[in-house]
Amino acid sequence: MRILFCMTLLLGMTGIASAQQSMPPAPYAYQQLDDPAQEAEAKALMETLRCLKCQSQSIADSDAPMAGDMRHQVRTRIAAGDDPEAVRAWLVERYGDWVSYAPSVSAMTWPLWAAPLALLVLAVFLMRGRFRRSNAQGSANAQDGEQG
């Protein structure tokens, strides 16, 4: 659905997109950083940042000019020695949690972590009840057998 929507959007907007691309892309939109360790950091971060234009893609995947500008920001900030999480925080401060594919624990998102634990506890509790009941039944049956 989303891909189809994005594709029709892209097809419909090729005229506009080509006009947007009459400007050369940002220097670090497609150019990797010279330091392989920094480039690896930048790449890992870019894969977990959402493109604001084609919203189901990461900025590492998207060819939208704005995604290129975001990659340029990420690479220049990492090249300047910024921590990847600081760069993520910089974007989250401007666009909200929404821009990041790696959810952080906050007042809004803690149930994401708490829910599986709560379900696990509930499952153990329910299963204990079941086992107890079947155990009791089992021993009752065994006694019946002895008597019979």
């Binding site: 940002a26 234009k53 340029h72 401007r94």
Partner: peptide, 14 residues
Amino acid sequence: DNLSSVQLEIGSSG
């Protein structure tokens, strides 16, 4: 703003 830097600074997405 040829690198969308101000656009990104103020949280504009389009």
